[in-house]
Design a binder for these strands. Structure first.
Lengths: 230, 230
DNA sequence: AAGTGTGAAGTCTTTCACAGCT
DNA sequence: AGCTGTGAAAGACTTCACACTT
């Protein structure tokens, strides 16, 4: 209870969620040979306001130079360090359906900071397949990962119905962070960090805004609105 | 300037983002034959607190019965209506790589409220392929969708480098909401709604928490803290 | 008795605007 | 002169706790 998932002596959640964006923008600047950048410029590249950017960075420390701006490579390093990307985190992906395959070969993992150490699937027909250089293993391989202590981040890409079972297995194997792409609610122990990405949810949020744009009216107490015009 | 993308006479963004979760939980209850539910129970199924749930629902209207709870099917309908899911929104997916294929066949679209009307890809080698019953078309097909007025929500599943170009094309074709799975920042006109889903970002946020768990101490500079006090 | 709906208090986040350093 | 870093103000969101309804 009093132990929030958020006992932070340090960096606010909202800030943490934006740091990856800054890091990416800095990477692009590096690629273009830019070595120094102002908060105004970096904010523009990242799609936030400069005040927000400065406040965010101020939580990491004082890495800018007044009157000048930020050194691109130094700031990149500091953000990487704050995010814990100066070492590699082992990632296990469970569920090698379309989505799992996409994730396994997605460039996101190529980003420094992560290494896919195992691809798992429940289906014997899928086990043994080679995806992006890794052989798909059965769920029982979790025991090995657990013993090796090489389970740290787990990604769930199974159908929604299996998500809780998979999450339980991951937690039992020592995984302490879970990224859930399967729909539905998954419960994990207090000390395990869980994040959720769901296509339906995203689409439904967009639908809300589409409707607002079109409808205009749609207030709560308006009873039955016109049925399908189509 | 003062014109926020967010002039809401109605429902707070944070609430809108949770409504899909309630809707899913209600669907499960319906499947189990439950016809009435309390805020406590529905909150538990949705992974939120009951106070938050009640406050959220209060923004839609007063659809509960004191001393009793909520009627499952009526509440489902009201949430669907609030989200704009009482009609179908046409969705265009651009980029038929691994991710695009996964999205095209993902159950998320099967959820009532959306219809995939086109799959597009820039690569002539991919055009013509049939995925989940739809034939992949070239980017030029956007002109047709635009003329039909059947472009409403666009999903970008291309490599990051093409994202801005694709977004521009979608907007030109009349798309008013965009869901971007490609990394990087994409700019769209004020009136177009944009949401972003990025694997790297999610992993990096998890890495932060993993590190916090492990590292414990190691805060960057303590010197600066003292400075601010003087 | 049970459980919703909601003001009010509390917490977190963003924005403002400017002091302070280079 | 220019740009960062940051208190203070404003705003958004969450939690509390209870009046009110069935």
């Amino acid at each position: 209870m009093s132990a929030e998932p958020n006992a932070k002596p340090g960096i606010p959640d909202a800030t943490v969620a934006r740091l990856p964006g800054y890091l990416r923008a800095l990477g692009q600047l590096t690629g273009r040979g830019v070595s120094s950048v102002s908060s105004e410029e970096l904010a523009e590249s990242s799609g936030v306001s400069s005040a927000k950017l400065r406040k965010d960075l101020s939580h990491l420390g004082s890495y800018g130079v007044r009157g000048v701006g930020y050194d691109v490579s130094h700031l990149s390093y500091q953000i990487s360090r704050a995010l814990g990307l100066t070492r590699d985190w082992p990632v296990v992906i469970v569920g090698m359906g379309n989505l799992g395959r996409a994730l396994a070969s997605y460039g996101g993992f190529a980003t420094k900071g992560f290494e896919v150490v195992a691809l798992l699937d429940h289906d014997p027909q899928v086990v043994g397949a080679v995806i992006d250089g890794l052989t798909v293993e059965p769920m029982s391989a979790l025991a090995r990962l657990s013993a090796e202590g090489s389970a740290s981040i787990g990604v769930i890409a199974t159908p929604a119905g299996s998500a809780q079972t998979v999450a339980d297995a991951l937690v039992a194997a020592g995984v302490t962070s879970v990224l859930n792409f399967a729909g539905g609610v998954v419960h994990v122990p207090e000390e395990v960090h869980l994040r959720k990405v769901d296509l339906s949810t995203e689409l439904q949020i967009l639908a809300f805004h589409e409707q607002r744009r079109a409808g205009g009216a749609g207030l709560p107490d308006v009873a039955q609105v016109a049925r399908g015009m189509s």
